[in-house]
Design a protein around this nucleic acid. Sequence first.
DNA 1: GAGTTTAGTTATGATACATAATTACACACA
DNA 2: TGTGTGTAATTATGTATCATAACTAAACTC
Lengths: 163, 163
Amino acid sequence: MNAAGARTRAGRTAGAAQADPLAVDLGPLGGFIGYRLRRAQLSVLAGFELALRELGLTPGELSVLVVIARNPGLTQSDVCAALGIQRANFTPLLHALEADGLAIREVLPADRRSNALRLTAHGREVLATALALHERLEKRITACLGEAGRAQLIDLLRQLETL
Amino acid sequence: MNAAGARTRAGRTAGAAQADPLAVDLGPLGGFIGYRLRRAQLSVLAGFELALRELGLTPGELSVLVVIARNPGLTQSDVCAALGIQRANFTPLLHALEADGLAIREVLPADRRSNALRLTAHGREVLATALALHERLEKRITACLGEAGRAQLIDLLRQLETL
DNA sequence: GAGTTTAGTTATGATACATAATTACACACA
DNA sequence: TGTGTGTAATTATGTATCATAACTAAACTC
């Protein structure tokens, strides 16, 4: 509709393919699930950072806080398995939460290789705030997709995980 | 419902919350679009690497090849705008494609600050192979979601981009 | 008690994303 | 015509996330 002439931007003088972004042909890319996932995730990530900026939590950190809060006493390996995080990458993430006073590790007497994880009182407060802020983001998403669309999307994404 | 006893795996001897991964309560996390996007993208990314391993192309590189092939003569800024890539990050990506002999940059006579991008013959060959391999991945995804589900997913993800 | 497995850590490397600063060029306009 | 402003590409940096391999200490097996 606007590719060849209609609403193109002024003359742009010279050479052929300067084109405004809308005129660029993505070809088969627009049908790639992976491409669409990336673009959507970028958008949601931007929303996340906007919503939780004041708390300085990364998405990964928030997910860990949630899981520890709901399952106190889990070991690091348990949390990693539940969230699909590599244990090696989990160590610094957890240490950051600990350094911020949000979580604690206690060596399990039953197996002194393992650490039982719990939130501090402060961790629970921060989590509650984070969830409240995050709720706003989810509301924006629901406004964008509709309640049914949102549910469908979650369902489809869950199916994709088992690819 | 299975936390305390029901379908827990064997005895697991000692301490409380060892739990098998399925027993971990994700709480509200399972309803976060961002979390579901991450898990789904990890899965699709693994499929991508599996499918295109032999070519050594990253998803970003493939997307750039597609766009250049369909829009020869675009400048770097044009491609960046079309794909949502930062220009600063595009430079090394493009240079890698150039080093591999897949793409070329020619200074635009009309504006010697800009580079017109094109694929080499070899680049077109590699792209054709890559698209064929990628097609298999998309087939797997369609097998997983169904044709309708796949179309729905793309539509929903596109809506999310405009969040 | 020796050999094997497991939890956590450390080290390292790749990919993506973001921002700020710099260089070279283009353009407008007085 | 020459100066100020804007833009294309680059460079440099910093961060988040994912992956692997190697190591330590503890636990388990037999």
